[in-house]
């Protein structure tokens, strides 16, 4: 069973990755030890691939820094389920290929210890056996997530337009 990490409303990106590190850490490996440093010190030590983050309203507000989304993807967080997301973080998560699910009912239903699973294709979150649906992503956005993020999606596009060598040339 995937571990779930539950947080409240208005979690900002300074708490998720302190500004004092933003210009000295940029690789996923450098980011990971500081993830959620000012929010929950146990997170970076204990988070495991497949874990799920559950949060309240306006998750990821504040700075546009992408360290939180990049770091969460790197440590293998499977999905973030929140009541709502701040716009830049929502977009940033998609660009990292991180599954962000806006589903207030599922967040309200969740109690500590409940098993949570996400079926992205069906658009369903299950909390302790109960199903909650969430709206499908627009096709443009879905394509980015399915490619594994914006960088991977652009690489795919380059490969498909250049005739196959993958460099983006006109071969």
């Amino acid at each position: 069973m995937a571990k779930t990490w539950k947080y409240g409303d208005d979690v900002n990106t300074d708490q998720m990755f302190p500004g004092k590190y933003t210009y000295t850490c940029s690789t996923p490996e450098e980011i990971a030890p500081h993830l959620f440093e000012d929010l929950d010190e146990s997170f970076s030590k204990e988070v495991k691939p497949g874990d799920i983050v559950i949060a309240g309203e306006y998750f990821g507000c504040g700075s546009s820094r992408e360290h939180p989304s990049k770091g969460l993807r790197h440590v293998g967080v499977q999905a973030i389920i929140a009541k709502s997301f701040a716009r830049i973080f929502f977009r940033s998560a998609i660009n990292q290929g991180l599954l962000v699910v806006e589903c207030p009912a599922a967040v309200d239903a969740y109690k500590l210890g409940d098993e949570v699973t996400v079926d992205a294709n069906a658009g369903i979150v299950r909390v302790a056996g109960k199903e909650f649906s969430f709206p499908a992503y627009p096709p443009k956005v879905k394509a980015i997530i399915e490619a594994g993020g914006l960088a991977a999606s652009l690489k795919e596009q380059a490969a498909s337009t250049c005739g196959g060598c993958g460099c983006g040339c006109d071969c």
């Binding site: 546009s64 830049i88 977009r91 960088a151």
Partner: peptide, 9 residues
Amino acid sequence: GVDRTETAG
């Protein structure tokens, strides 16, 4: 505002 990856894109 956008993020760094979007800017690179």
